[in-house]
Structure formats: structure tokens, C-alpha cells
């Protein structure tokens, strides 16, 4: 599933990132396959979205988040 499909508060693990001009930047900022990610809030109008990454909070537009494939963890892990 894509990062944009995650409900706020759920935890997922990044599985892959599609090729795009910003793939490099996403990786630089810590979006690497295997990393845990949790959407925490959306800006007014629902875009951009802020995600908690392992060490910090990263915001990105829906467009960028759409290029990130994630695996939703078992709902029991979510908080």
C-alpha cells in the first residue's frame, strides 16, 4: 500500500520507493526501506502530511508520499 493510504496514527514499514526526481531527497531525509513511519497530522486542505520517522518528523506533499510503498504493521502495534 502507499504511504498516502495510511490512516493518521497507524504505523507502517517502508518497503520501497518508486523512482522520481525526489527519490534521492526522500532517502537523504531518512525514508529508506525498512524504516518505520507513522502519519501524525495533515496540513489544512489535507496536504502536505507530516510523518513521524524513526528519529524525527518529516513533512511532504501527498505527491511525494504517494511514491512510497509501505506495509501496514499489525494493527496491534499501532497507537
Amino acid at each position: 500500500m502507499r504511504l498516502t493510504e495510511l490512516p493518521i496514527g497507524s504505523i507502517a514499514r517502508i518497503s520501497s520507493i518508486e523512482d522520481s526526481p525526489y527519490k534521492e531527497k526522500l532517502k537523504e531525509m531518512g525514508c529508506i526501506p525498512g524504516v518505520l513511519v507513522k502519519p501524525i497530522m495533515k496540513a489544512p486542505f489535507g496536504d502536505p502530511i507530516a510523518f513521524e520517522l524513526e528519529e524525527y518528523t518529516l513533512s511532504m506533499r501527498k505527491n511525494e508520499a504517494y511514491s512510497i510503498q509501505v506495509n501496514l504493521l499489525n494493527p496491534l502495534f499501532n497507537s
Partner: peptide, 9 residues
Amino acid sequence: PSYFIMELP
């Protein structure tokens, strides 16, 4: 394409 990837400290 333009993008916006920014830390929220």
C-alpha cells in the same frame, strides 16, 4: 516536478 520535503523540528 516541484516537491516539498521538509523536517518539522
